[in-house]
Design a protein around this nucleic acid. Structure first.
Lengths: 181, 181
DNA sequence: TTCATTACCGAACACCATGTTCGTCTTGTA
DNA sequence: TACAAGACGAACATGGTGTTCGGTAATGAA
C-alpha cells in the first residue's frame, strides 16, 4: 500500500476518533472530519464511501485486534474449564482496554449501535459453544442472547467507569452471569 | 383539545408506526410521514418540532401506558416478596404486549436506541429499590445496570420472538436474572 | 534519474431533506 | 354568526452529501 494512502487513512481515523470525544456521531459532519484530518474533500471519498462506512471500518479494525487469536488458542477454547474461561474473558478485556481512548466516544450516541452490533456478532460466535447447553425450559437462543448482551453491556458500563481493572470487570461479569451452575 | 388537532396527531402517529414497519427510522423522511398521514407540511411542523421529537413523543405515550400505576400499587411495590415481583414483571409485559404492533419496527434500527434509553430510565427507577442490595464485591451501580439491561434486552428479544406469553417471558427473565439469591 | 502511475487537491456542482414563511381557506366554538 | 385557531401548500433559504474535473505532487519501478 502506498505510503500516502496509509498516512491519509491514518489521519482520517485519528481525526474521527478525536471528534468522537467531542461531539456525538450524528453531529459530526464529513466536513468536520476533512478539516480536522486536514485533507481534501475528494480524498476522503476515495477512501470511504460515506461516514457510516468509516464508522464500520473503525469497528472492524478494533475487533480484528480484540479478537485476534494470538496463538489460535481461543478458537478451540474449552468452556468447561471455569478457570480457563475467566482467563479468556480477562484477555479480551485487556485488548479492549487498549482502545479506552475511543470507547467512551464511540459507545455514546448513535455510533454505539453499530459498535455493539458488530461486537455482539463476535461474541455470539465465541459463546455459541459455551457450557451453558444444559437442559432447561429457557430457549437456547434466549440464553445465548442473554450472555452476549450481558457481556456487551458490561463493556459499555466499563467505558463509563474505567477505574476498574480487567480482572475486576471479569469478576463482576462472571459473578452476575455465571457460565457455570 | 380541538377535534382537528386530535385527528391530525392521531393520523401522524398512525402513519409513523405504519412506516416503521416498512422502513428503518433514518430511511423515513418527514415527507413520507406527511404523505402517508395525508396532511400538509406546515401542519406536521405545528405538531412536532422534528422527526426526533415525534419519536420521543411516541415513546412517551407508550411508556405512560406501560408504567401507568393502575392502582398506585407499583409505587410501593415490595421486592422482597418473590411472588409479588413475578406478578409485577408479568403485569408490565402484558402492557407491553398491547404494543406488539409497533415494538418490532421501533426496536429495529436507530429508533431502538431512543426507545431503549427511555425504557431503561423507567426501569432504573423501578428496580432502584429492589432486594438486590446484599453486600457483595460487585458495585451497586453495576448491579442495577445489569438488571435494567437484562430486562430491556429481554423485551427486545421478545419483540423478535412474539410467540411466547408474558408468563413465559417473565419466567425466562427471572430464571436467568434472579432478583433473589 | 527518468517516467508512468497513482494519490491528493479544491472549487464547483447537482441533489435532497429540512424547517420556515406567508397568504388563504376551513372548521370548531363561544 | 363571528372570529379565533387549525389546516393548507407553494415557495424559499439552508446545510450537508457525494460527484466531477482539471491540475499538481509524490511514489516506486525500470
Amino acid at each position: 500500500m502506498d505510503r500516502r494512502q496509509r498516512k491519509t487513512r491514518e489521519s482520517i481515523f485519528r481525526a474521527f476518533t478525536e471528534l468522537l470525544n467531542k461531539k456525538t456521531y450524528t453531529k459530526i459532519t464529513v466536513q468536520d472530519i476533512i478539516d480536522t484530518a486536514d485533507i481534501g474533500r475528494t480524498t476522503f471519498y476515495t477512501h470511504f464511501e460515506t461516514k457510516d462506512d468509516l464508522l464500520k471500518s473503525l469497528c472492524t479494525e478494533i475487533f480484528e485486534h480484540v479478537f485476534s487469536e494470538d496463538s489460535g488458542k481461543e478458537k478451540t477454547h474449552d468452556f468447561s474449564d471455569e478457570h480457563d474461561t475467566r482467563a479468556l474473558i480477562t484477555h479480551i478485556l485487556y485488548h479492549l482496554q487498549e482502545h479506552m481512548d475511543v470507547l467512551p466516544g464511540i459507545l455514546s450516541g448513535e455510533s454505539g449501535e453499530v459498535f455493539m452490533l458488530t461486537f455482539k456478532e463476535h461474541l455470539k460466535e465465541l459463546f455459541a459453544h459455551s457450557g451453558k447447553t444444559r437442559a432447561s425450559f429457557v430457549p437456547q437462543d434466549y440464553m445465548l442472547n442473554h450472555m452476549v448482551c450481558d457481556f456487551a453491556e458490561t463493556v459499555k458500563w466499563w467505558s463509563k467507569n474505567p477505574q476498574y481493572t480487567p480482572e475486576e470487570i471479569s469478576a463482576f461479569f462472571l459473578e452476575t452471569t455465571p457460565l457455570f451452575e
